[in-house]
Amino acid sequence: MEIFAAQLLNGLSLGSMYVLLVLGFNLMLLVAKIIQFAYPHLVVLSMYVCWGVLRHTDNMLLVVLASVASCIVVNVAIEPIFRLLAKRHGLDINVSFVVSMSMALLITDVMSHLLNYGYPIAFPTEWVGKSIFSSGLIAFSAGQAYALFGGIAAVAAFFYLLYRTRQGRVLRAISENSLLSSIIGIPIIKTRVLSYAIAGLLGGLTAVMFARLLGSASPGLGDFVGMKVVAASILAGLGNLKGGLVCGLLLGIAESMAIGYLAGSWSNAIAFMMMLVIMLIKPEGLFGIEA
């Protein structure tokens, strides 16, 4: 029972990270009509930025700013590539996947060549933080608290932006019908760039929280997280934001449970196996495709 409670807590903090990544991924899918497979890789890149900044200062605000800025800048900088792609191929999400997968490979390879000689990076122990609560097997670290509560706050802010503000309304309008949106005078390209920027903002925040949660990162982390994030979005139904919320959390919990109850090296395979079974049974996702 204690293992269960401990892993549930772990799973919720890990899951809230997945949720943020799924939301950013789906936002670009809905508004810009692309599959940005390299999005989690960009987040890992921002974790490296956090690490670099931390070597010079331990000012939390600076770290967050650097992480967010780098993620936004890179994500917005690749937007013209996808715009050109749409001009060449039409809005074909499969071609956008081919391109973004190449970007993912590129980012991973650059990280493993240039950053820390390709070795995994470790964040300072005080960055992950001491245990702020413990009882028996249950231990709740500061890093987990940041991930969980930061995650909840970021998700709440995201949904507020999308459903309660003027810009959010415009983003939803384009995701539903971009032609009609342009007819009523909504600037499509500007709004698409905005969606990249918002995803970048979410990604930068996620990078900081992920760094505090995991305490380390490696060039291969992007592929790993990327596959899980994308699989969770497919499980939910591509483009389904609320479904993504559920599936992201479920994935985090399932993975933590597998870690808690099974031999280490198999835990990820089990998580993937579960996803695989659901995807094979329901290729359209549990909550329906909305892209």
Binding site: R166, R172, E176, L180, I184, G185, I186
Partner: peptide, 16 residues
């Protein structure tokens, strides 16, 4: 915009 409310549709119309 069929997933949005009537008010939201009108607000979108007033974008400019």
């Amino acid at each position: 915009f069929s997933t949005m409310t009537v008010l939201e549709n009108l607000q979108l119309g007033a974008y400019h």
